[in-house]
């Protein structure tokens, strides 16, 4: 036990040397939208999809398109943390629908290194119906985007088409 007691003293010194230094968590928060087939109710990939936030501008002052003519199974659409509604334009070909999301923002502190992020609870969704989407608020809690095996490990909105 003398060896053990000396080792315990060494361990105390080593403990002092372990420090947090880096942000090891995702600080990206976004609504996760997944597309489903209205016929099979299975996940599907839609081609030619463009998604843009209403009122979003990039650093150069032009409209900021999230996805342009893309083949999508999953779309990550951030909610505006400075508002209680965010509208997205979703286009397939020549048709466009406006999806408006109503939510409550909850700031959350992650760590000293990561800072704060905004979580949200989606309370309502309104849509135009040009594309015949059926929208399901599957999980209203919007949080940090995480991945498992390169696949987004969350789902907020299901769009059946």
């Amino acid at each position: 036990m003398k060896i053990l007691s000396h080792a315990l003293k060494v361990l105390l010194v080593l403990m002092v040397c372990s420090c947090e230094e880096f942000c090891e968590e995702s600080t990206r928060t976004a609504m996760v939208i997944k597309f489903y087939s209205a016929e099979t109710n299975l996940e599907t990939t839609l081609a030619g999809v463009s998604i843009r936030g209403v009122g979003a501008v990039n650093a150069k002052g032009a409209d900021s398109t999230l996805y342009r003519n893309a083949s999508l199974q999953t779309a990550l659409c951030p909610l505006n943390p400075g508002a209680d509604t965010t509208a997205y334009l979703i286009s397939i070909g020549e048709e466009t629908d406006t999806l408006t999301f109503f939510y409550k923002t909850n700031p959350a502190f992650i760590s000293s290194e990561c800072g704060c992020v905004a979580f949200a609870e989606i309370t309502d969704i309104k849509q135009t119906t040009n594309l015949n989407f059926r929208i399901v608020n599957f999980n209203p809690s919007v949080g940090q985007v995480s991945y498992r095996n390169n696949v987004v490990n969350a789902e907020n909105i299901r769009i059946y088409h």
Partner: peptide, 11 residues
Amino acid sequence: ITIPSQYWPAV
């Protein structure tokens, strides 16, 4: 708190 955002303005 300042909420950062990659797409919308920081708040």
